[in-house]
């Protein structure tokens, strides 16, 4: 079913459909907020992640740190940020990775006022840019 927010570009709204898709992935991510689990994941990544019944795609995305893929497969940023923290990546560095800008350029964009809302409201605005 089409949703009112489908046409917001570069955005995945974590609704009940995404939450259902990402349930075990997100439970894996949040488990890493505790030191004992971080130690277990560090000692044996595959062994630890296999205690969570996620899909093979989600498993690969988590193990390879595919940050956009994780969101598309039902992850939510506040969960995936726990996996990022495990890898020593904070929210701003994570945004640098997801946008493909890299930390330095992303940080510079934020310091100069952030990503403008103009041209970033509708998917159609992004599509036009791709054509032009």
């Amino acid at each position: 079913m089409a949703k009112a927010y489908d046409d917001i570009p570069g955005t995945i709204v974590f609704d009940s459909e995404q939450a259902a898709r990402g349930y075990h992935l997100n439970q894996f991510c949040i488990s890493l907020r505790l030191q004992a689990n971080r130690d277990a994941y560090k000692a044996d990544p595959e062994g630890y992640i296999d205690t969570f019944p996620m899909t093979p795609e989600q498993r690969t995305a988590a193990l390879t740190e595919d940050w956009l893929g994780l969101l598309e497969l039902g992850g939510n940023i506040y969960y995936t940020s726990k996996l990022a923290a495990f890898h020593g990546i904070n929210f701003q560095e994570l945004a640098g990775l997801m946008t493909g800008m890299g930390s330095t350029d992303y940080r510079a964009m934020m310091v100069s006022g952030g990503r403008s809302i103009d041209g970033n409201r509708y998917q159609s605005e992004w599509d036009e840019n791709d054509d032009g």
């Binding site: 917001i8 570009p9 570069g10 955005t11 995945i12 956009l68 969101l71 939510n76 940023i77 940020s81 929210f91 994570l94 945004a95 997801m98 946008t99 493909g100 992303y106 964009m109 934020m110 006022g113 952030g114 990503r115 403008s116 809302i117 970033n120």
Partner: peptide, 17 residues
């Protein structure tokens, strides 16, 4: 206030709003 942490539109700020 305005912020987006996720995906490719991360970094969005809307000061007027």
């Amino acid at each position: 206030m305005s912020h987006q942490l996720q995906h490719q539109r991360a970094g969005l700020i809307n000061a007027d709003w």
